[in-house]
Design a protein around this nucleic acid. Structure first.
Lengths: 341, 341
DNA sequence: CGATTTCTGATGTACGTAAATCAAAAATTT
DNA sequence: AAATTTTTGATTTACGTACATCAGAAATCG
């Protein structure tokens, strides 16, 4: 049988109350006694039964998710996953509140963060816009001992406790290699589409993409980035214009959202053009386009995993427990038409 | 607050004892009363607090993992992950026993399975060799109401409750497309290496690979499969021989183990040969080969995920609970040199 | 109808931990 | 050494569920 608090008490030669004081860092224990108890804990290899502890505590974790509004499929999916998490709230002892903030709107995000100060909150998860004001607001929360986790897009130089998202530099590099290898030594130009260079995830993807392109595929020339603001219609017109004006384009990398528009623009050109296309985020549209050959590869981050990981990390941080970094690593999924889920 | 058994009792107008009898399917409840209770459960949306229930029950799950011996990295990793799971045993209330059986040895596997009959076991996970005798032995356990999960390699037409592994047909198809696209329209021959056609995962990978190759890359001709028995030295000599005898080979797909031997053989030929290579299983050897360019892509299944998933499924099945299929889907990881973890 | 069987209620203990109270002991100060 | 403060012990209740026991009620049988 696994050891219990009673065993600690017996081994340490102290009472249950003292063991409890040590375990829960309550005051009123002399240093020597504390050390005796801690030695006993190590000796018998005691591990707190978290289930029993939570039961006794009746603890709930009030969590806040700050997510951008916007009608693109990815953010829609993200909000859906947070909502799914609220359905598991009673089982997981969480109490999740969703706060929506306009995308790329720094003051709104800061206001939403500041509104949380002083509240009884066990953790905050936010899709960060990478600005100094946001960093400052996050740091204010952190200094109030509120666990903060960035979701999908990280925040530079902040004290956030954790980032629940993919390695976007690696994602960009991977996109470059897929595109470069799929083009098999051909020569031509590559169009890169982004949502906004204000968010760190897009900047990092571009950075990784450019680096590998420059280093390993010198025959492929990158055109200036088109910013589609993650909006489909804008993306469609940008792509249509680019394709009609420049016949040298043989590859496209969309590192942001707005795939619906991209796909529409692609379907409007003759398939003989032989474009190779790599995009981010698996949605019903990109899935269909992958199957019908309009798109060649989709890089994906699983929003459900990210949300669940963020919740685990916030809970663990709130309890002062360590997180197992390896377990919380969000992986980059690569989908070809053959391995769709 | 979430509803408890007391709430059920109050709403149904019965005692706690009766609620308990209904919840745990104990005898001695009239049909009408039972229905009253069940109606109340639905009405208030009661969900059993599994943590509290397990605490009260003091339940442990005796589980058995049957894994092949063999020194290849993947099986080594799999055994390691099962061992890791034993370290979490007390937390997860599992009691895991590992049984090792020679690889591809049908009678030994059957004997190991039959030895479990009549024992007090909450679940069995096995890396299946796909043979009728094994299927029969598995079905015997299933008919004894013991949950059985196949791990990594599935068992045809058996009554096993679940398969914790990747879709190997999809894996083979994906490998074909990667290899085909990376070769960018070149013409030549492709060598396929396998461990043994006795295991279903290898057969399925080959099936998927061949299908896509035939349908979409007609310029690439498949050579007869080389069976390396998942042994490195054998694989090395087979590959060396093939490469020296046939200068038309431009691509290699290793769908089994034995990558150490393959890599050694590849390093022995001049890099100018320009081979494109896709293999399975990320190990320290394949990782290094990916980084130095000897290998172009690695398909991987995360043994840790598979083991943890198998445990969750066995526990749920033992408790008569449904498994969330989507959550237990094991994904195929694709690694290029840019997205290594 | 009474006797028997079947069902239901009331109650208590247990699981491992948290948290509180109050008394007692030990250490520290005066 | 007495007074004070700090530390420790003993005990109790609670969390939500499981499980057992025994008495009493309701249903069924003869």
């Amino acid at each position: 049988m696994r050891p219990t608090v009673h065993d600690i008490a017996a081994v340490a030669g102290v009472s249950l109350a003292t063991v409890d004081r040590v375990l829960n860092q309550r005051p009123g224990v002399r240093l020597v006694t504390r050390e005796k108890v801690e030695a006993a804990i190590r000796e018998i290899g005691y591990i707190r039964d978290v289930a029993a502890a939570n039961l006794a505590k009746g603890r709930v974790y009030p969590l806040v998710f700050i997510v951008p509004t916007g009608d693109n499929s990815f953010m829609h999916g993200l909000r859906f996953e947070v909502h799914q998490a609220t359905l598991r709230a009673s089982i997981e002892r969480t109490d999740i509140r969703i706060v929506e903030v306009p995308a790329f709107d720094v003051p709104a995000l800061v206001a939403a963060l500041d509104a949380l100060q002083g509240q009884d909150i066990a953790g905050v998860a936010l899709v960060a816009t990478d600005a100094p004001e946001v960093r400052a607001a996050v740091d204010r929360l952190v200094s109030e001992r509120i666990p903060v986790v960035t979701l999908v897009s990280d925040l530079s130089d902040s004290n956030r406790h954790h980032y629940a998202g993919i390695d976007n530099i690696a994602a960009g590099r991977t996109a470059a290699r897929l595109l470069g290898r799929f083009l098999g030594g051909r020569e031509g130009e590559i169009t890169v589409l982004a949502g906004s260079m204000l968010v760190r995830d897009h900047r990092e993807r571009l950075q990784g993409f450019s680096a590998v392109m420059a280093a390993e595929f010198p025959k492929l020339r990158l055109l200036p980035v088109l910013e589609g603001r993650d909006a489909s219609e804008r993306t469609r017109s940008l792509v249509s214009k680019a394709l009609s004006e420049n016949t040298e384009i043989i590859g496209i990398y969309n590192l942001g959202a707005g795939n619906r528009g991209l796909i529409a623009a692609l379907k409007a050109v003759r398939p003989e053009r032989g474009l190779t296309v790599v995009v981010h985020e698996l949605t019903q549209h990109t899935r269909a386009a992958l199957i019908d050959g309009t798109i060649d590869a989709v890089l994906n981050q699983d929003a459900g995993h990210e949300v669940r990981s963020a919740i685990r990390v916030m809970k663990a941080t709130a309890d002062g427990q360590a997180v197992i970094a390896d377990q919380e690593r969000i992986r980059l999924d690569i989908f070809l038409k053959d391995n769709l889920p």
